[in-house]
Amino acid sequence: MSTAELTETQPDRRREFLDGMRYGLPVLLASMPFGLLFGALAAQNGMSVGEAVLMSATVFAGASQMVGLELFGQTIAPWLIVLSIFAVNFRHVLYSAALGRRVTHWTPFQRAFGFFFLTDPQYAEGEKKALNGGLSFAWFMGMATPIYIFWVVEAGIGAAFGNLVPNPHALGFDFLLPIYFLGLVMDFRKRPLWLPVVAISAAVSIAAFYLVGSPWHVSIGAAAGIALAAALTPAKRGASL
């Protein structure tokens, strides 16, 4: 891309980037306890500050980082830890497939780079933005950049001061994430088939949680909801069920 082209579109891009940042702010605040908590738990599990920061910077997926930490503490084969991280993150395959349809106007490099930052809230807000005026790369990165920077810094702070948190349970640390995820579920309540999908995913994920075990309940429960939505939809436009 030439410099002239870049300059021409610069104000637009800056506006888009700044607008994206506004959407990143609540996510940044909501994820702050988890970023710090991850660092704190990492330190308690024997990780160095550098290793905690490395994990937040390269994995950048809170729930799977927590699962990874839990397994690091035990004598479990390394490949099994990696597989568990992948299982928790498998939902991103679905986000990626869904959002890929919205960003066909991005360059391949923008997609390869941008999708690294595809977290749960990033997907949720990106999808809404795509349906509401289009999703630009600048907007997407505007939202992702502050979330990412704070996430990495928090791992370092959490690891350095981790053992100083007096009573994480009293502060609700372990249950803030589900509350936040519930908010994201509620955000999608206008979608077709929302209630049956949520109901079946809840029932099947609870069953899988107790019968199969974590982290598989995520993939199994989600698959049930997605399969139901597909099954309830006519194969051809206008066809009856």
């Binding site: 869904a98 995913s201 029932a203």
Partner: peptide
């Protein structure tokens, strides 16, 4: 269309599994 419907159900389905159990 069914793949499309399945993809539209992705966020609610996945996020629900992070709450319900």
């Amino acid at each position: 269309p069914r793949v499309e419907a399945g993809l539209n159900a992705v966020p609610a389905a996945v996020l629900t599994t992070l709450v319900a159990p």
